[in-house]
């Protein structure tokens, strides 16, 4: 199952929008937690300018190769470039923000 979740419609998507892809394997508590964490974080920091695409590898196993997925959950920032990868259930918000370049790296 591939679900495309679009951010709440607030007019046309602004240029320089964020394209995020979350890879999970099955609907387990860790997957659910990761998606909840991601949504909350995007609403706080990227409201109105993000797309989240969730890919369940148990449904679409062939998609794991394309983005070189090994660990799950993995969040891939497709846009803006460069591509960034973040692994884990996204519960450490500070690390997620650093990983997405929304906070400067130490």
């Amino acid at each position: 199952m591939t679900t495309i979740e679009t951010a709440p419609a607030s007019g046309p998507e602004p240029a320089g929008g964020w394209c995020l892809r979350l890879y999970v394997a099955g609907q387990n508590p860790r997957s659910v937690r990761a998606l909840q964490n991601l949504k909350a974080l995007c609403e706080t920091h990227l409201a109105g300018r993000y797309d989240i695409e969730v890919i369940d590898l148990l449904e679409n196993p062939t998609l794991a190769r394309g983005d070189q997925i090994v660990a799950v959950p993995t969040l891939v920032r497709k846009l803006p470039e460069p591509v960034r990868k973040i692994i884990g259930d996204l519960s450490n918000t500070e690390r997620v923000l650093v990983g997405l370049d929304l906070r400067p790296r130490r």
Binding site: Y23, V70, V83, K85
Partner: peptide, 17 residues
Amino acid sequence: NEIEETGDYDLEGLFVR
């Protein structure tokens, strides 16, 4: 260096591949 660890994970992606 392109990977940030933000919580619990496993290597199911490798198993799937």
